[in-house]
Design a protein around this nucleic acid. Structure first.
Lengths: 265, 265
DNA sequence: CGTTCCCTTGACACCGATCAACTCTGGTGG
DNA sequence: CCACCAGAGTTGATCGGTGTCAAGGGAACG
């Protein structure tokens, strides 16, 4: 926690972090995906963060067993939720992208039973636990939206299990790419058939329950099959329907029947 | 749903189903595990079920894509939460035991993204969606307890992923047994180092992401190692600490720091 | 310009899948 | 009481996907 750089509220340097409103863009898009949020609800979301900090890549945002005093939300950058085994092996159980909460559960359970580590430089919002506790009473719409977001995360976990348990490495990797594509699209971070993939092959391996060596070979196999192109951290999907068919991907589990674009371009 | 036998409120035949109070025993033990429930809270839980039905073994309680009109809760028997792939393979993502909710999420998400099937004959409680919606407002204690139960289920999902992704079949199976032992103990269904295991080897295989043949061999391996004994659907654990050590099991993820026995014997 | 990640590639071993046959058990009906 | 049957468990032989170990290459960074 110490050493994280606090972001001045006004305006950091790069265009990507232009203003505080920009930073909550993904969060509002995600929460508003199911039901519309009133302007005042949206404003409440924007004012949620008592603090905003930059975190370098490969730093723990939350360690296993920690008892956080705040709720953390990803505002930019990627992170991974991981479980550490006693033998030192790591299993990534979720990728976190802007708009995702790190520890929505912690107001109830108190203690982290896993860790969260940044994969890229990130900007993290801090929400006070007290605000989080009372928000639902003041804004029932937001209670539903937050609950809904948590339940979709749970649904993603179930799909993740099926991914590891019942698909081979190539299908599993393809499925993961389809999921990331859909989620990034939902929060308005991409709008075509390519996506940023700022993770190492070791991260991919830990997410799929395979070894880094095999992740490399699987990646090559998908490339050779013409299902993906990957260079410079950008993943291109030449034929999205083909990739989805290969992976057995359906978006039912993401519960986006009512998906609509709450952002404008 | 049709064809399920409604249980008369008074008193079915067997000792196990003696009264309606008995049936909610596990549920109340589970919800009260973290924070005490007042007598009136407990009474509210008991009166939650508008209907109680018996379901034979191997019947779907909820099918994928279904839009249930009620919330379902296990009162006796075992069930499995499963994801079906397009190629027909099945991945079990959770075992449900008495006290577990089948579809707590459905008031928010509406549609099932997976199925639930009984593994044994079971008794299922039906809670009206409307009651479920308004319960939190009337009984904040119960809101917390229900939310907590859901979050622990989510935590179990993460451990399940690590189980499949980063443990070999024998360790994974051992870990599953440790989890089931702990959960059954929590709801007061066992009190020594043996537990009922009313599932087929195929069920075990689908839970661990392996084949039935390999599940069989893994079971034999654990038996040969002296870690378990299994006969007649009863699993005996001669040396629980040894099994936990072998599996790498810790109960942190079940969030039972405050575990206390709410039942009496 | 050297260090440090990260990616890549090869050879080989092993865990678990697949296919197939057989046994055991409990239930059903003659 | 016995014959039959279906579902579950058991076992062997063989195959393939992944893991493991090891070495080298390439790009970013101080």
């Amino acid at each position: 926690m110490t050493g994280f750089q606090t972001v001045p509220h006004g305006a950091p340097g790069t265009a990507a972090y232009r203003s505080r409103g920009d930073l909550t863009h993904a969060l509002i898009a995600k929460l508003g995906a199911a039901s519309d949020l009133s302007a005042s609800d949206q404003q409440a979301v924007r004012e949620l963060c008592v603090d905003i900090r930059r975190v370098p890549a490969k730093k723990n945002i939350l360690r296993p067993d920690e008892r956080p005093s705040h709720v953390h939300v990803m505002l930019s950058g990627w992170a991974a939720r991981y479980v550490l085994q006693k033998d030192g092996s790591r299993q990534i159980v979720a990728f976190l992208i802007p708009g995702d909460f790190c520890d929505l559960h912690v107001t109830i359970l108190g203690r982290m039973d896993h860790g969260i580590v940044t994969l890229t430089p990130a900007v993290v919002g801090y929400v006070s636990g007290a605000d989080m506790e009372e928000l639902p009473h003041k804004r029932p719409n937001l209670l539903r939206a937050l609950w809904r977001a948590g339940l979709i995360d749970e649904s993603i976990l179930r799909a993740w299990i099926a991914n590891i348990g019942r698909r081979d490495a190539a299908q599993g990797m393809a499925h993961l790419f389809c999921e990331l594509h859909t989620r990034l699209q939902l929060v308005g971070l991409i709008d075509d058939d390519s996506l940023p993939l700022p993770v190492t092959q070791e991260d991919l391996a830990d997410a799929l329950g395979i070894t880094p060596v095999h992740a490399n070979r699987t990646l090559h196999k998908l490339r050779a099959a013409g299902l993906i192109r990957l260079k410079g951290g950008i993943l291109e999907i030449p034929d999205l329907p083909a990739l989805k068919a290969f992976a057995g991907f359906t978006l039912g589990y993401l519960h986006q029947a009512q998906l609509k674009r709450t952002w404008d371009r």
